[in-house]
Design a protein around this nucleic acid. Structure first.
Lengths: 212, 212, 212, 212
DNA sequence: TATGAATGAGTCTTCATTCAT
DNA sequence: AATGAATGAAGACTCATTCAT
C-alpha cells in the first residue's frame, strides 16, 4: 500500500537536458575567461540564466562543474578535425594537421581551454592529466602513427616519430600561440596560419623528407 | 620623537631594503606554486616571515605585489643566460640557446612563472604583455638578431628570421614542456634536453643551412 | 477532465489518507533522529517515499509538519499503556507504571521524542506546552489520581499526591534516562529496569506506605 | 639576516583575552537560547559585539565555539557548590545538595545548558559524553561517595549508593525541572525548591535511614 | 617601521518553499 | 492529487585590507 518509488525524487536530471546544456554553456564562458578561482558560482548562474541553486541540482559542487566543462572541451572541442589517411602524402596531410591544430589552440572568441587547464593542472592533477592525455598526447599520437606509415612507405625517414610529431605540432604554433595566450591577441587570420604552417611543413620535409 | 628624518618618515621604504626582498622571495614561492587567486596574503606573510600588515607597507595591494613578483621574474629569471656572439657558428649557438631556453621554461623545483603569468594574462593584461615582451619576444628577438648575422655571414639562408627564431624556440620544447606543465612532470633531465635540442638543431640546419 | 468531484477538488486531503500517514511516518523517523533543524524536507520526502511537493499538499510548512508529528507522538505514543485500577494495590500498580514510563522515555531504536521536543521547546512554546501537558503532566495526573484513591483506601498516606506522583516518576528514571539521552546508551534491558523500578517502589512505600 | 619568527603571525590570541571572553559570553547566550542549529554565527557576532570574522580568529569553526561554550558550562557552571563533609549528618547534607542541584539544572535567566547539550548529544557524542561525565555522573559520584561514608558511619543503610544518589538527584527535580524545560517556566522560587527538596530528603531517609 | 587584531564584503553551499505540468 | 525542477534567502567560512599601538 505504501508505493514508494525512490527513483522519483532527488534524481539528477537527464544528462542531456536543456537546462544542463544551458549551465554548461554559461559556465564554459565564465571559467574559460576567468579561470577556476576567478569564476564565481553567482556569475556563472547569471551568465547561464539560471538561479544559483539550480547549478547545484545538476552539479554537486564547483569542482565537478569545472571538471564537466573541461571534459566537454577535452572530448568535443579538443579533437582535431582531421582524417589521417596513411595513403596520402605528407605535405598535404601535415598542412591539414597544422591548420587544424592551430584552430584548436587558438580558438577565436576568447576563453582558452588550454590556458584554463594549464592554470589549474597543479591543483587538480586529474583534470590536467586527462586533458593532456586526450588533447595533447592523443593528437601527437595520431600524427605519429601517420608519420610511421609514411616512413614505411619510404616517403619519410624518421627515427623517433613521436618526437617528430611533437616537433611539428610545436613548430606550427610559432609566432601564433604565445601572443594569443599572453597578449590576448585575436585568433590569427587564416593567411598567417597558412604561412606559418607552410613554413613548418617545408622545414619538416627538409629534415625528414630525405634519407640522411 | 620630534626629530624627523626626512629620508625615513612618510617615505616608501627603500627599494632594496632587506624586508622588501624578504617579502618578494616569500611571495614568489607562494604565487608561483598556487597562482594569483590560490595565494593568500596570510600565507605569503607566513612564508616571508613578516606580518600581514608589513606586506602593505611595501605593496599597496595584492595585485601590485604580484606584479612586482612577475617583474622580478621577467627581469632576473626570464633572461636567457646566453651570450649571442654573431661570430660563432650556428650549431653551437643554437644548442646553447635551446638548453638555456628549456632551463627557463622547465625550471625545476615546482612553481612555473610561465604558467602563472599565462593563467592571469586575460585578467591582468599589462602583466601578460610585459612578460611576453621581455621573456618571450625578447628572447626570440635576440635569437633572430643572431640568426640575421649568420644569414649575412652566409652560414644560414632565412627569409624571416623572426619566424625562424620562434620555430626553433618552439621545437626545443617538443615533448618536454607540455608534460612538465600539464602533468607536473619533473624538470627533464639534461640527457633528454640534449637529445631534443640536438634534434631541433639538426632540423633547423637541414631547413635553413643550405640555399634553397 | 471537467467532471469535478466536490469532495476531492480544492479540498485538503483526507485527514487519514494513506499518503498523509506515509508522510507522518517518514517525518517522524527523520525529525526524531535529527531534530527539527537537523531534519530537511528533502530527507523527509525521501524517507517517506513521496516528492517534496507532496509534503506541502498535506502540511503548509515544516513547522506544521513537525507539530503534527509531535501531536502524534503525544497522543499515540506518549500515553502510558497502563490501566489504573483504583482497587489494585500500590506495589503492583506502581511497578507497572514505572516500567511503562521507562518504555516511553527510553524507547528503543533511537529517535527520542522527549529529547526532540525538549530541544525545541524554547523556540516553539506551544509544541512544548502541549507535549508537557499531555505526556508529562497527563501521566503524572493519572498516577496522582490513582494514588489519591489508595490514600482514600488507607493504603497510602500522602499529603501531596501530585508531588508524590512526580517523585515516583522521576525516581524510576534514576541511572537509566540520562545515560540514554546523553550517552546514546541503548534502551536499558528489562532486568535493569525491573531492578530500578523495584527500588523506587520500595522507597516510595517506605515513605508513603505507613502513617507518619 | 632573514629574521623570520613564525610565532609572530597567525597566532591564536591569548586564551584569556577579553575579546575571547566577550565572544564566549555572547555565544553562550545565543547557543543556550536557540540551540546549536538555531544559532547563527552572524547572530552570535552581533550579540557578542564583534565582527563575524573575529569569531574565526578565536575559534576555528562553529562546532569548536560551541564545544568551548559547553566546556565552560561543564567546568565552571556545572559543578555543584557543595562541600561534602563525610562527618556531617545526611539530612543537612542532602538538603544542601538538593538545593544546589536545582540551582544548576533550573538556572534562572533562560538558556538551559542541560537542554542544549541534550539536544545535540546524538550528533556530537563527545560533547554529550563530556557533559554527562562531568556534570551528571560527577555530581552523582560525589554524592554517592558521601553516602558511602554515612553508610560506614551507620547513619544510612544502602546497598547501592550510586543508585541511591541518582534516585535522590532525580527526586529533587520532581515537579520543578520538566515544567522549567518544557514550559519555559521561570526558575522555581526558593520556597518551592525547599519544599520539594525537604520532601525528597524525608523520603530518602524513610527508605535508607533505618536498617531494613 | 612593524605588528597582528579586527573587519566585512564576498564565496560556496544548503534548503524550505513554489509552481507549471 | 502529485510531481520535481527551479528558486532565492540565508548560513558558514575566507581573506584582502585597515588601523591603533
Amino acid at each position: 500500500m505504501i508505493e514508494t518509488d525512490p527513483n522519483t525524487t532527488q534524481v539528477m536530471p537527464d544528462e542531456d537536458s536543456s537546462k544542463r546544456r544551458q549551465i554548461l554553456e554559461g559556465a564554459r564562458k565564465v571559467f574559460m575567461n576567468l579561470g577556476f578561482d576567478g569564476a564565481s558560482m553567482g556569475e556563472i548562474a547569471r551568465v547561464a540564466g539560471v538561479s544559483k541553486g539550480t547549478l547545484y541540482v545538476y552539479f554537486s559542487d564547483k569542482s565537478r562543474l569545472f571538471a564537466a566543462i573541461v571534459e566537454d572541451e577535452t572530448v568535443h572541442r579538443g579533437t582535431l578535425n582531421v582524417q589521417f589517411d596513411p595513403a596520402r602524402d605528407a605535405e598535404t596531410m601535415l598542412r591539414e594537421f597544422g591548420q587544424a591544430w592551430i584552430a584548436v589552440v587558438c580558438r577565436p572568441g576568447g576563453g582558452s581551454a588550454i590556458r584554463t587547464v594549464m592554470a589549474i593542472a597543479e591543483r587538480m592533477p586529474e583534470v590536467g592529466h586527462r586533458y593532456y592525455d586526450c588533447v595533447i598526447e592523443g593528437t601527437i599520437g595520431r600524427l605519429a602513427a601517420y608519420l610511421q606509415a609514411r616512413v614505411e612507405a619510404k616517403e619519410l625517414f624518421i627515427d623517433d616519430c613521436h618526437l617528430a610529431a611533437s616537433q611539428f605540432q610545436m613548430m606550427c604554433q610559432a609566432t601564433l600561440f604565445l601572443p594569443f595566450i599572453f597578449q590576448g591577441a585575436p585568433a590569427p587570420p587564416p593567411h598567417d596560419v597558412q604561412r606559418v604552417v607552410a613554413s613548418a611543413v617545408r622545414m619538416f620535409l627538409a629534415a625528414y623528407g630525405t634519407k640522411r
